[in-house]
């Protein structure tokens, strides 16, 4: 089977201009609503570049192992770059793979004109197989780029969503928003424990009003965090328990007996202040707002238990 010897590069070279125009036209037809992201000149440039690389690679005679062989390095690099940029410009996977697949029609028309009989069948088979592989390759790179984006966003989300706030002297709070899985628990735990060391906190409030559901797994993660804080001498208060969540916890038989729980952040903070020996009092009939603030501050006297 003379599949490694092909005359296709020659005929591509001979009819390059004609084929290029045909190919660009093909793509433009499908990419109509994408034309704002991709000017015609860029598209033409890309097609030309690919054809050049493709010819060089095919001439090398290496047809089987295009994923590894050196001869196809240029084509692979070019296609990878193209798929990546299209993925980031939010093209769909098929729109991206189309770049390669749309070459089939102009190329096969050309081959039909140039070859006859068995030779035609052989050539078409070889080239078709090649283009399929290259098309799949673009899809793979496309998928990879999309996954990279998702992974980066996940990482950012992890960092964004675990702030530790200083509420008062010796009191810190962690508002937990979103589903609590083990990776996030780990991040929250690390942040919380570091903050305990940094601020010398005696009480930590974990607010779970932003956690959509609490199942046994989530509760387990919460209990872990509470135990770790306890080992460092800090008492945890879990607040923001919504009525449905309270019911779920009871139905699931989760034991939160060793943890102080409060319905709202308000209650938790009030409890924490009382525990730390603070007494907050409203001042009546203050004349100017500045004076009021000053008096308020002096009225909040603290005596540690």
């Amino acid at each position: 089977m003379p599949s490694t010897v092909t005359k296709t590069p020659e005929i591509i070279k001979k009819n390059e201009q004609e084929m290029l125009e045909d190919w660009v036209k093909q793509q433009k037809k499908v990419l109509q609503n994408r034309i704002d992201h991709l000017s015609e000149s860029t598209l033409k440039q890309q097609c030309k570049e690919f054809l050049n690389q493709f010819q060089t690679a095919v001439q090398s005679g290496e047809m089987k192992d295009i994923d590894q062989s050196k001869a196809w390095d240029g084509v692979r690099r070019f296609l990878a770059e193209l798929s990546r940029s299209r993925a980031l410009a939010s093209f769909s996977p098929s729109e991206t793979a189309l770049f390669v697949f749309s070459l089939k029609q102009p190329l096969f028309t050309l081959m039909q004109r140039e070859f006859k009989g068995e030779e035609l069948a052989n050539e078409i088979w070889t080239i078709s197989e090649l283009l399929d592989k290259l098309g799949l390759f673009t899809t793979e790179v496309y998928q990879q780029s999309r996954e990279d984006v998702i992974r980066r966003q996940q990482q950012e989300l992890l960092e964004l969503s675990t702030p530790v706030m200083r509420m008062w002297e010796g009191v810190i709070a962690v508002p937990i928003i979103g589903t609590l899985d083990s990776a996030r628990t780990q991040a929250i735990m690390e942040n919380l424990l570091q903050e305990i060391v940094d601020t010398n906190a005696k009480l930590a409030i974990l607010d779970i009003s932003g956690v959509p559901t609490v199942d046994t797994q989530t509760a387990q993660h919460l209990i872990k965090t509470v135990s770790a804080a306890k080992l460092m001498g800090t008492q945890c208060i879990i607040s923001g328990i919504r009525p449905q969540i309270a019911q779920t916890v009871v139905h699931l038989g989760i034991e939160l007996d060793n943890v102080i729980t409060k319905a709202t952040m308000y209650d938790a903070l009030a409890f924490a202040l009382a525990r730390r020996g603070w007494h907050v009092q409203r001042v009546n009939g203050a004349s100017s707002s500045v004076e009021k603030l000053a008096r308020q501050t002096s009225n909040m006297s603290g005596n540690l238990p």
């Binding site: 780990q186 735990m189 690390e190 424990l193 570091q194 305990i196 060391v197 010398n200 906190a201 005696k202 872990k224 135990s227 770790a228 804080a229 306890k230 080992l231 460092m232 001498g233 800090t234």
Partner: peptide, 30 residues
């Protein structure tokens, strides 16, 4: 028991060691 480091605390929890009956504090003074 005082001054347990964050990393150690996490390890202990992951190992499932419950220090029942032990009081804990952040530093020697506390």
């Amino acid at each position: 028991v005082t001054g347990m480091r964050p990393a150690v605390a996490i390890t202990m929890v992951e190992l499932g060691i419950s220090m029942k009956g032990v009081h804990t504090a952040l530093n020697a003074e506390d």
